[in-house]
């Protein structure tokens, strides 16, 4: 699916304000991912072209950052903090709960395409550990028992 006019306009705008267009690489990828959920090879190639980069160059950048998704993700991305404070407060159990409820391991997407489960570094919510983030919404003070209700909100 080719980049649409809206995406092209945003990438060009981002590129214009940089001393060199490739300076906008990360923001451009984020902008496209915001709309498409992930960055396919085809999308990557097109963004690269707009930025005057080769696919190799842009992929080198894209694969560095853990929040640029180079594989399809579900409708909702669940980022489970596995850093130290959350670990102390039981993130392993929380993740275990998610795994059983969703029937997937970290890195996987539910067969219905609803959730992708990923580990994440400290979310800066250590005062509400264990915490997770779904689509940018932070949820703290969790335990496995609270998961059912929480997931309900994400259809």
């Amino acid at each position: 699916m080719a980049l649409n006019a809206d995406e092209l306009a945003e990438i060009s705008r981002l590129a214009r304000r940089e001393p060199q267009p490739h300076g906008a690489a990360i923001e451009a990828l984020r902008a496209v991912q915001r709309r498409r959920g992930w960055i396919s090879d085809e999308t990557l190639g097109e963004v690269a072209q707009v930025l005057g980069m080769t696919a190799d160059e842009l992929d080198s950048v894209a694969t560095f950052y853990n929040l640029i998704f180079r594989r399809p993700v579900g409708r909702h991305v669940v980022l489970v903090c596995d850093s130290v404070s959350c670990w102390i407060m039981g993130c392993d159990e929380l993740r275990g709960g998610l795994e059983t409820r969703l029937g997937i391991a970290p890195g996987q997407t539910t067969p219905d395409g609803r959730f992708t489960l990923l580990p994440i570094v400290c979310l800066g919510a250590c005062d509400h550990a264990p915490a997770l983030m779904i689509d940018g919404d932070l949820h703290g003070d969790l335990d496995p028992a609270k998961l059912d209700r929480l997931l309900e909100d994400y259809r």
């Binding site: 090879d41 990557l44 080769t54 696919a55 190799d56 160059e57 992929d59 080198s60 694969t63 560095f64």
Partner: peptide, 19 residues
């Protein structure tokens, strides 16, 4: 050359082509 690069991070860094 612009069709060769390094990909990924930490001990997974990979040197080659995008495809």
């Amino acid at each position: 050359g612009r069709d060769f690069d390094v990909f990924a991070t930490h001990r997974d860094v990979y040197f080659g082509r995008h495809a």
